[in-house]
Computed example of a mutant assay.
Amino acid sequence: MNKSTAGFCNAIEALGQALERADAVVVGAGSGLSSSAGLTYSGPRFEAHFADFIAKYHFRDMYTAGFYPYASPVEYWAYWSRHIYYNRYDLTPGRVYFDLLKLVRDRDYFVITTNVDHQFQLAGFDKARLFYTQGDYGLWQCSLPCHKKTYDNEKTVRRMVAEQRNRRIPTELIPRCPVCGRPMTMNLRSDSTFVEDEGWHRAHKRYEDFLKRHEGLSILYLELGVGSNTPVIIKYPFWLWTWQNPKATYACINLTDAAAPREILPQSIRIEGDIGEAIASLIP
């Protein structure tokens, strides 16, 4: 992204104007936002924390490592405890999250995100204005599941990281469901076993209520770093709601593929480039 170009400047100006006239802002955040904040899953960060797993299995990134069929639960949880720890507990939110909060803090806003790294809450966003649709690295659930409840994992994860040796955790730390005794698993949406607990449903209802309260008003749908893996959660609804509401504006900031259907192009603002740079340009 060349910030000196007229196209970028015009798009930033248009986005600033859309923010000012909006009655409400709905932020839709995908993995590109956390990548802009430095939460990368490959390269030096991955190599620094998972050198032993890389040496053994030649992994190239955390995604690959997370799906690997480890031979035993003690090795599986040795990997996953580190994955959780470094992507949920041992990190500070990137500047882009704090800048985004500055933009929306005094506005009527809501955030829907497919990210599971807790960055919004760590940066100070109001928990009552957040909806994490795909789960949370900080939660476990029964692998069956035998009941619709999730469990905080921080204390056990920290022990797993501290006490593991040779890519293995102590056997007694393997998490099991307190109800049925089956193995626990991550509360991450990957199939129909994902647990939508009471907290998930409360957040979902708050999101739906927010949308209903602002129907027909001037709304800015601000999409940040949303890719093509789960477009039905954020991207497609934002497009549809913009098309249905002449007062709405759809803004997309993404490193690549910042696109919009031709039906809503007159209501759209598209910025291709680093999200952090674009958001920082909006700060007075």
Rank of each mutant, 00 (worst) to 15 (best):
Q244C: 06
G199F: 02
A258Q: 08
E172A: 05
F210Q: 07
Y68I: 02
E20W: 02
P237V: 02
V226D: 01
V157S: 05
G7Y: 15
R82I: 06
Y221D: 07
V74F: 00
I234E: 02
V96M: 04
Q134N: 14
T40Y: 00
G7M: 15
P44W: 06
L188M: 12
R60V: 10
F98G: 04
G38L: 02
A123K: 05
L144K: 08
E20K: 14
S31M: 05
I219N: 12
V27F: 12
K212N: 12
D99L: 04
A203D: 12
R60E: 12
G216T: 03
D126A: 12
L100K: 10
D257M: 10
W200F: 12
F125W: 08
D274Q: 09
I54P: 02
P170T: 02
Y70A: 06
W239A: 11
P266H: 06
S81I: 09
K155D: 15
P93N: 07
L240R: 10
G28M: 13
T114G: 15
D61Q: 01
A11L: 08
I219E: 08
T256C: 08
Y250A: 03
A48D: 11
S35W: 15
N2V: 01
A259Y: 15
R88Y: 14
R189G: 01
R129N: 10
Y109Q: 06
A278M: 11
K148V: 09
L220V: 15
L255N: 13
D106G: 05
T156D: 11
A260Y: 07
A162Q: 12
A251L: 15
G7L: 15
R82G: 07
V96H: 08
R168Q: 09
R159K: 14
F50E: 01
Y79L: 03
S31L: 08
W239N: 09
S72M: 03
T230E: 07
K56E: 08
F194C: 06
G181I: 10
V26H: 03
R182M: 09
E208V: 11
Y207H: 08
F50H: 07
K205Y: 05
T185Y: 00
Y85L: 07
A280K: 12
V74I: 13
L240P: 03
G38P: 07
A6H: 07
S36A: 14
T133S: 14
N2R: 04
V157C: 03
Q134F: 03
Y221I: 05
G16V: 14
Y57F: 05
A78E: 00
P170V: 00
H83S: 01
P183W: 07
T40M: 02
P69N: 06
R202H: 07
R206P: 02
R88A: 10
E13A: 15
T171L: 13
R21I: 02
F53K: 01
E75S: 02
Y250E: 09
W200C: 10
G66N: 12
I269S: 09
T256Y: 13
S35T: 11
T242K: 14
A278D: 11
C252D: 08
Y137C: 01
G43C: 02
H201G: 03
G273F: 05
R206C: 03
A22R: 10
W243D: 01
L220K: 11
Y250L: 12
G28Y: 15
R165K: 08
Y76R: 00
I54F: 06
F110W: 08
Y63D: 07
S218N: 14
K235D: 07
H83V: 00
R82E: 10
I275R: 04
L222V: 13
I271C: 04
L265E: 15
Y137A: 04
F8E: 04
W80H: 13
G135M: 00
